[in-house]
Simulated assay, not measured.
Amino acid sequence: MNKFKFEKLIIWQKSMNLGEEIDSLAESFPDKEKFNLSSQIRRAADSIALNISEGSIGQSNPEQKKFMGYAIRSLAEVVTCLHKAKRRNYLNLIHFENLYGKSYELMNMMIAFKNKIN
């Protein structure tokens, strides 16, 4: 039931999945992070899919490229937050490496997609 163009994009689907995994991770952070790292990583993760979808609706190619750039920057922010969470012992190395790997794969896909936009 994909009626919107962006719903068919693998990068959008993967970013939606990553956003849910990040939300679950942030739920496990200590209460002191509720308005700090927890909020930041959730907003950044959600911003990836939001920018992909916003850029795909009735926009010119330069506009779509701009929004893909925003999505890429948001993913970089998620990765930095993952590093912060690992350093603060909010996730173990295996969980970190899993999310880091998914982020790296998504980043490469998003960059390739952005580079294909004329």
Rank of each mutant, 00 (worst) to 15 (best):
A112Y: 09
E33F: 01
E7S: 13
E20S: 12
A76S: 13
I111S: 11
F6T: 09
K102F: 02
I10D: 14
P62S: 05
I22M: 07
V78G: 06
I72M: 12
I10A: 13
N61S: 15
E54C: 06
G55Y: 01
H83C: 13
R88Q: 05
Q59G: 09
N115P: 07
K86G: 02
N89P: 00
K34I: 04
A85D: 13
Q13N: 02
S60H: 07
L93W: 00
M16R: 15
S15A: 06
H95E: 13
I57A: 15
F113R: 10
S24W: 00
I11T: 15
K66W: 01
S53I: 00
A45I: 00
F35Q: 09
D23G: 02
Q13F: 02
K84L: 11
L37Y: 07
A45M: 00
Q13A: 05
E7I: 04
I94L: 11
S24T: 03
S15G: 06
E105P: 06
K5P: 00
E77N: 10
N61E: 15
N92K: 12
M1V: 02
E105D: 15
Q40H: 12
A26F: 03
I52A: 12
N108E: 12
L9G: 03
Q40M: 07
D31W: 01
T80D: 15
S53L: 02
I52Q: 15
F6G: 08
I11E: 12
M16A: 13
N92E: 14
E105A: 14
G19M: 05
N115G: 09
I72W: 07
C81Y: 02
A45P: 03
L18G: 06
R43N: 14
G19C: 05
L106W: 07
I41Q: 06
Q59I: 01
L25E: 03
A49L: 01
E21F: 00
S24M: 08
S74P: 09
K3L: 10
I22G: 07
G55V: 02
I48H: 11
D31Y: 10
K34L: 08
G58P: 01
P62Y: 05
K84V: 04
L82T: 04
E7Q: 15
G58R: 09
L91Y: 05
E21D: 08
H83Y: 14
F113S: 08
L50F: 09
I72E: 12
K116E: 07
Q64L: 09
H83P: 00
R42I: 05
L9M: 14
A45H: 03
L37S: 11
A49M: 04
E20H: 09
Q64C: 08
N36C: 10
R87N: 15
I117M: 13
R43E: 10
N2W: 01
F96L: 10
M16G: 01
I22Y: 05
E54A: 14
N92T: 00
Y90T: 07
E33D: 08
